[in-house]
Design a protein around this nucleic acid. Structure first.
Lengths: 238, 238
DNA sequence: CGAGCACTTGAAAGATTTCAAGTCCAGTGG
DNA sequence: CCACTGGACTTGAAATCTTTCAAGTGCTCG
């Protein structure tokens, strides 16, 4: 995948005008400290299946997803793949990186992002305690998500994984549209996220469909029976 | 487990003397920003199998492990257990928490910790950018560790998990004592860390012993053939 | 309209788990 | 000091869940 295909669509001119002073940053206390970054953002588009950044690549930018879906991918030498998570509009990417990115980021669908220079993020954080705190909390939230996934991958059955995944996706969508999930990722992507094979994912989704727990269409899954899914997600074993 | 059994062994009186001013904190630039916390630390002991803090419990303290081994545990309703990681002397605990602890922390062996009040950690970080940055990086490091474990749990075979685990433990020990690992945790603990059963852990360790890749004794595992382990850790499949 | 890819579904294979006995120690009490 | 007990650890055999292998089906795009 060729990250050169990323196109800068728009670059706000916020930093060509009068430069805000350090004092401004220290006093600033917007609703969300991240708003401080906005003036340094650039909007970029990435096409489906293109790489936003590679695994192990130097972390020079952070992003906010404006449109589309992104997958965070780790690849083993022999091709086995683990998708750490899927990012949806509103989600942030790369704010918790160290020197390099842990995962490659790839566009699942056509994606529009807002890109921020990491140098700037770090520089601002150094002067603004609110922002610093916000960034730390962001990373803690990512960590919490990862920890929940350890249990899913380490101890849950295939059915539990699928059910948990669907419920998580449902919770993330603040869409009024009750229970209709955008699922732009392929079965392979789901499998690589859940530590299963594509066939197992298919079979379990087929099961859910036959039970009328979900209605499946190209690119969407509608949750018809939330309670059944919840039960399936935490089936008591034994 | 009764966290009331934690005993305060020693409480430094650093904060009873003249209080450092905010100015002091902002100018302070010790080798490690975390050193700022030292004067607010208290040393506590926890006995084997006692809880240091519960899962979901409010995060009021952070800790540094001085002696012994700690396991970070998540428990499912039906008793299935996932150990997120084992902490060894020098490791930090709870610095990446949000309001509550993701995991319960339990003493694998008798443990001695240095405890710091979280309120203080956060208050200092608000005034000292170095410390704030250090805390953010700490959390990022935890995140990186968790991400590596996602691949292990999602995509690696039982043998690869064991081999990877042993190599990781080896890397963490800066002990001059080449390849002799302190392994105070039970087989069950290892299994719950690696997403396996205790029997599978036993069988694979037995295999490694028969191959003379490792030498196993009560509480220690000596790595005799590092190369074999490395190969086993990243066996090309197919 | 055909090719290719994503997705399904069935059947066989396999890795790991579950069930079942032991074995080996460490600590306890006689 | 030594037998005893319980828990941790081992090992074997059967069971099972998931994967692997195979063979379609059905879209979508050219």
């Amino acid at each position: 995948m060729d990250s050169a295909t990323i196109q800068t669509v728009e670059r706000l001119s916020g930093n060509t005008g009068k430069r805000p002073t350090v004092q401004t940053f220290m006093q600033a206390s917007p609703r969300d400290a991240l708003d401080l970054l906005e003036q340094f953002g650039a909007t970029v588009s990435v096409q489906r299946d293109q790489e936003i950044h590679g695994q192990g690549e130097e972390a020079n930018s952070c992003y906010r997803i404006l449109r589309g879906c992104v997958r965070m991918v780790k690849l083993m030498e022999d091709g086995r793949r683990q998708i750490g998570e899927f990012l949806m509009p509103g989600d942030l990417l790369g704010f918790d990186a160290l020197e390099t990115h842990d995962f490659a980021a790839e566009a699942v669908s056509d994606v529009v992002l807002r890109r921020y220079p990491r140098r700037m993020v770090d520089a601002l954080a150094e002067r603004n305690a609110h922002l610093a705190r916000r960034l730390r909390d962001l990373t803690s939230i990512s960590l919490r998500t990862a920890h929940a996934r350890l249990v899913l991958l380490g101890r849950k059955t295939a059915s539990e994984r699928i059910a948990t995944f669907l419920l998580e996706m449902a919770e993330r969508l603040p869409q009024a549209r009750a229970g209709v999930l955008d699922m732009p990722m392929s079965r392979t992507d789901m499998a690589d996220h859940l530590g299963l094979t594509i066939e197992t994912v298919c079979r379990i989704l087929a099961l859910l469909r036959r039970e009328a727990t979900v209605a499946i269409e190209r690119g969407t899954i509608e949750i018809r029976d939330h309670a059944s899914l919840q039960q399936m997600a935490s089936e008591q074993r034994h």
